[in-house]
C-alpha cells in the first residue's frame, strides 16, 4: 500500500524553483530518506506534504488523502518534526509533552508504548526546561512530541543536523524501532552516510530528484569501479590527479582519494601506473565499493552537465 504519493510537484519562489517536477511513492511502513544539501528543496517538499505549503504544480497525497483538499484530515494522521528545534524552550520537558498531547487530543499515557523507548531516556530531565537540553536530548524530545498522537506517517526534517555522531547513531536506532511498528517514516538529512540506514532514498539536488532507489541499488548502479588512493601528501596528489587526462573524477574522501578513470577496463595495476607518475610516498591503491556520496557527486556532476547543455 502506498502511504505517500508525490506526482510532478513543483514549487516556485519567485524565479527560483525550490522543488522542480518531483515524483516518488513511499510504501506503508517504509523508512524513506530524502538526501541532499541545504537548498535542495527538502524542506519545501516536507511542507507541501504536511499541508503547510501549497504546491504550484502537481498533486500529492498522504494515506490516500489529498494534501490540498483533505488537509484537515491529514493533519490528524501525521507527525511532523520541523527542521529547526521547534519546541517551547521555556517549558519543561514534561510541559512540552503534555501540551502537544493535549493539542492532538491525547495524553502521554494513551500511546505510551510507542514513545516508551525514547521517553525513558529523557524522563530523568522531565523538569528541565527544553532550552537547557543538549542537542541530542532536544532531538529526542521533539521526536517524542511528534509521536505522541500515534501518527500513521512521520515526517522528520533534518532531525540529525548539527547533532554529534553518538546522538545521531542513537537517533537512527530509534527510527529503526519505530519502523517495526509499521509507521511510515519520511526523513531528510544532509549527511550522506546516514542514507544506508533507509529502506529507500531519494537523492535531491537543486530542487530535483536525481535518483530514487534502495541504497544498495544506487551503489550498484554506479557505472565504474572506484579506487581508493592513499598517500602521504594527499592534497598534492589530488591536485595532480584532477588534471590528469586519464582521470575521470578524483575527490577526497577522508584519508583516501576516490578515483575513477576514463578507460573502460581498469585494474589496480592500470591505476598504479597513472598515479605512480606523481611519485607519491606511501602509495596505497585498492578497489572499493562506492559510497552514496560517490554516487551523489557523480549524479550532481551529470545534472550540472545537463543543465549546461540545456542552457546552450
Amino acid at each position: 500500500m502506498i502511504s505517500v504519493s508525490v506526482k510532478n510537484i513543483s514549487k516556485l519562489y519567485g524565479a527560483v524553483k525550490a522543488v522542480d517536477d518531483v515524483s516518488f511513492n513511499v510504501q506503508q511502513g517504509e523508512l524513506f530518506g530524502l538526501i541532499g544539501p541545504d537548498g535542495a528543496g527538502k524542506t519545501s517538499l516536507f511542507r507541501i506534504l504536511t499541508t503547510l505549503l501549497l504546491a504550484d504544480h502537481g498533486t500529492a497525497s498522504v494515506n490516500g488523502l489529498d494534501v490540498v483538499k483533505d488537509y484537515r484530515a491529514i493533519r490528524n494522521k501525521i507527525g511532523y518534526m520541523p527542521g529547526r528545534f521547534s519546541l517551547y524552550q521555556d517549558l519543561t520537558v514534561n510541559e512540552n509533552l503534555s501540551f502537544f498531547a493535549a493539542i492532538f487530543g491525547t495524553s502521554i499515557e494513551e500511546n505510551y508504548a510507542l514513545i516508551r523507548d525514547i521517553y525513558e531516556q529523557i524522563k530523568p530531565f522531565g523538569n528541565r526546561r527544553a532550552g537547557k537540553l543538549s542537542g541530542g536530548m532536544k532531538q529526542k524530545l521533539a521526536l517524542c512530541c511528534a509521536l505522541i498522537h500515534k501518527p500513521e506517517v512521520l515526517f522528520l526534517d533534518e532531525p540529525t543536523t548539527g547533532v554529534d555522531v553518538v546522538s545521531r547513531k542513537e537517533f537512527w536506532e530509534m527510527l529503526a524501532r519505530l519502523k517495526e511498528q509499521q509507521i511510515t517514516i519520511v526523513v531528510s538529512t544532509p549527511y550522506m552516510d546516514e542514507a544506508r540506514r533507509c529502506d529507500r532514498i531519494a537523492l535531491m539536488q537543486a530542487g530535483k530528484i536525481m535518483s530514487v532507489e534502495t541504497p544498495e541499488r544506487i551503489i550498484h548502479n554506479f557505472p565504474k569501479p572506484v579506487y581508493a588512493v592513499g598517500a602521504t601528501d594527499l592534497y598534492g596528489l589530488l591536485k595532480e590527479l584532477r588534471v590528469d587526462p586519464a582521470v575521470e573524477s578524483c575527490y577526497a574522501f577522508g584519508e583516501y582519494l576516490h578515483l575513477t578513470v576514463l578507460a573502460a577496463t581498469t585494474s589496480e595495476q592500470s591505476i598504479h601506473s597513472i598515479v605512480q607518475k606523481y611519485q607519491p610516498k606511501n602509495l596505497v591503491i585498492k578497489e572499493i565499493t562506492p559510497t552514496i556520496e560517490d554516487s551523489f557527486i557523480r549524479l550532481m556532476n551529470e545534472q550540472n552537465a545537463n543543465a549546461e547543455n540545456d542552457g546552450e
Binding site: R47, R75, S86, Y88, I103
Partner: peptide, 13 residues
C-alpha cells in the same frame, strides 16, 4: 520564529 507554529498548524487545532 521558533517553528512551533508549524506544529500547531499541522495539528488538528
Amino acid at each position: 520564529e521558533l517553528g512551533t507554529m508549524e506544529i500547531l498548524l499541522v495539528s488538528p487545532l
